[in-house]
Design a protein around this nucleic acid. Structure first.
Lengths: 208, 208
DNA sequence: AGTCAAACTGAACTGAACTCAGGTTGCTAG
DNA sequence: CTAGCAACCTGAGTTCAGTTCAGTTTGACT
């Protein structure tokens, strides 16, 4: 189920937090954050608009939470896929593979992340929003560091030609993430095919 | 000057349209579209808020205009750089080079484009907004076709290994455009260096 | 049965985008 | 010169989604 990861440890049994997140992911992912009315999310969950504020400080706080959760998942998946891989080329393959091992809900979350990255730039006025924003920003930096480290290791071991590892890491990430801008599960190209093409691109970018 | 391209042919001499666009590009590009108050743009130009509506139907209409202008410029630059190039590899090099031949204001416009692409997805309620949106969407598709054609030609001539040209074109575009998400003129990596790295990536992605 | 925190609500508030009903400016024609 | 007219501009008022307020309901646990 989708909701499993959306449940926080300290939630009461009556809590609708997970349901709100799930509904918000659907709306924000399909129609876009700005285009969806916060009250529509409440409607879908079956509560009044004001009840939302019991769980989230604001619409933006909910969005930032969704983004942070997805970044966390993304990073965990990277770490899980690459730890233990000795060969840098195999590690790179595993990292790209992990980036494409996503459910439909996670595709939406990646899209949301992509479309609202700009929110992570400026500071937020309210406290809980700012906390989520900071956490998300730090996860982004962690992920960039993880990829950079993977590349640096490969370069120092002679598996990859030496280049600016950080910029190259940003390029790889940019390439991979850009897929979620246009990819649709209903589209003509199946995800496995996209994954294969992108994996090839990444390997050629780094190893040749 | 920046404003030169922002002036429409049928503008009166007193028109502040160009000044509004320039101010909006600065604010939308630096602080983000949602984060900038429409009235702040008016303030910068030195007119009342309501005067904005003499030139643009809405804040979104202004944004869509900025996006369309940048897409137009982008496409023109691609065509100018690649027409006449016989060798597919040279054409690819020229295309990437053209993508990085940008002024500071154009960097902001690329960032704005990148951050608000989601606006091009859904239809707009008002007429002039919808016109701009359609134009922008069609430019995006033109650009995708241009790149796909470049790749298809290279593949059929044997200069590039045969792959899904359209998906590969989207990957190239995604890679190039992703730069504008993180690149800052004040940053540690100069644009020429970024350009070189990305050009190398693109060539390896396509030719190896 | 009483208590308490979690969960919820309708009514009121806020602020930024936008509309309205005109007023000003300066070019152009007579 | 001045009349007319279109481009340009304005202050006051409206709208609407997001948010706050001032409580009320629910249900687990003494």
């Amino acid at each position: 189920m989708t909701g499993a990861r959306l449940v926080e440890p300290d939630e009461g049994p009556r809590s609708k937090r997970g349901a709100i997140l799930a509904a918000a992911i659907e709306y924000f992912g399909e129609a876009g954050y700005e285009a969806t009315k916060w009250s529509a999310v409440a409607g879908r969950v079956g509560i009044g608009q004001t009840a939302l504020y019991h769980y989230f400080e604001s619409k933006a706080h909910c969005l930032l939470t969704i983004m942070r959760l997805e970044l966390q998942r993304s990073r965990d998946q990277f770490v899980e896929a690459t730890e233990g891989e000795q060969d840098p080329v195999a590690a790179l393959r595993a990292a790209v593979g992990a980036a494409f091992a996503v459910s439909e809900a996670e595709i939406l979350q990646m899209r949301i992340l992509q479309n609202n990255m700009v929110l992570l730039a400026g500071p937020r006025a309210s406290k809980r929003e700012e906390t989520e924003r900071r956490a998300a920003r730090e996860l982004v930096q962690s992920i960039e560091r993880d990829w950079t480290r993977l590349l640096t290791r490969g370069m120092s071991e002679g598996a990859f030609p030496v280049r600016d590892a950080h910029t190259l890491a940003l390029a790889l990430l940019g390439l991979i993430i850009s897929v979620w801008r246009w990819y649709r599960p209903t589209g003509s190209t199946p995800l496995a095919e996209v994954r294969e093409l992108i994996e090839g691109c990444c390997l050629r970018m780094v190893t040749e």
